[in-house]
């Protein structure tokens, strides 16, 4: 039985880690981009960002003051039990969000869409979002905090089978160029593509692909993995770098997630996780232990299962054991 005060304390720490510490995988990817960038303006921007990460860590300040709309991703091991149940977990996450907003501080971005009411704590109707997934055999809970900006860099479109891979490429380019100009997407970014599913799931998969997979991670489907790599090069061939200045660093990585969709359609979403790609994960064990990491390990073989029944784990699931 996992106590909710442990969950709340871990969640508070996650809000802080996500806001302040740039994940190593993204940092390595950005350093690589900076090493080949030859645009004068773009290079200056990347050097300033690299310095900014150091200052954030040294001063324990948020790396970006637009701490976006803080949100949560929760993965339950099938055997995990929480003292007070899921309702107590949600209460703990809402309390941690409010406490972090005041104590760190985060920017209190969350307002009512019409009345613009701001509780100054990033909590309100349907906020923060909490998304769930499940995993066989575990007695732990993984909690991931993500601070993601909420205004630009994302788009959705209903494509059709006849649009083909070229249609996907074109929409990908459209989104990158549209929001890359003036740097509205805060690139170089981790680009997430949600392909298929129903319309809402297409959006959700794209967001999760951007925020919950690490730089260098490839989709287990080899053809999709090849497409991811092709799209990295395609994005970096636009001729645009940081802030929309002339350059070659637009995409640090590209992650594609798929879901089965309507036979007549091929919905797609594109999301950009920005120069402050902020995520942090904790595994809370049944014994109350808390282990922090930066890889959410969200897309497991179980998450990507294709058949009616979940069979014994295939080969490529051993990394998640």
């Amino acid at each position: 039985m996992i106590a909710t005060d442990i969950l709340e304390d871990a969640a508070l720490t996650l809000m802080e880690k996500a806001a302040i510490e740039i994940p190593d995988d993204y940092l390595s990817g950005l350093k690589q981009a900076a090493s080949v960038e030859d645009g004068d303006l773009s290079s200056f921007v990347l050097q300033a960002m690299l310095e900014n990460y150091e200052v954030a860590k040294a001063d324990r300040r948020a790396m970006c003051a637009d701490t976006g709309v803080p949100r949560w991703f929760v993965k339950f091991g099938n055997e995990a039990r929480i003292d007070g149940g899921p309702v107590a977990l949600e209460a703990a996450l809402r309390r941690a969000t409010a406490r972090a907003t005041h104590d760190l501080p985060l920017r209190p971005n969350r307002v009512h869409p019409l009345w613009r009411t701001d509780h100054d704590n990033n909590v309100g109707i349907n906020a923060p979002e909490i998304e769930y997934s499940f995993e066989p055999d575990g007695d732990w809970i993984d909690i991931t905090a993500v601070h993601k900006g909420g205004l630009f860099g994302t788009d959705y479109r209903m494509l059709f089978p006849g649009d083909g891979i070229d249609g996907i490429k074109r929409f990908y380019l459209d989104t990158l160029v549209a929001f890359g100009k003036r740097g509205l997407a805060c690139q170089p970014a981790i680009i997430g593509i949600g392909l298929g599913g129903s319309k809402d799931v297409s959006m959700t998969l794209g967001k999760q692909a951007a925020c919950l997979r690490t730089v260098g991670d490839r989709n287990p489907d080899e053809k999709i993995a090849a497409l991811e790599e092709e799209f990295i090069d395609l994005g970096n061939s636009i001729g645009m770098g940081a802030m929309g200045f002339v350059g070659k660093s637009m995409v640090v990585d590209c992650h594609i997630e798929v879901g089965y969709c309507h036979t007549g359609g091929m919905p797609i979403s594109v999301h950009a996780f920005c120069l402050s790609s902020r995520r942090a994960t904790a595994r809370i064990g049944a014994d109350g232990s808390v282990e922090y990491r930066t890889d959410p390990q969200w897309f497991t073989p179980y998450m990507r299962r294709e058949r009616v029944e979940w069979q014994s784990a295939p080969e490529n699931s051993k990394a998640f054991a």
């Binding site: 300033a48 001063d59 790396m63």
Partner: peptide, 14 residues
């Protein structure tokens, strides 16, 4: 004047 990045929140905070 445009900010840089975006954004260098910690640098500006300092």
């Amino acid at each position: 004047l445009t900010t840089v990045g975006y954004g260098t929140g910690a640098l500006l905070g300092r």
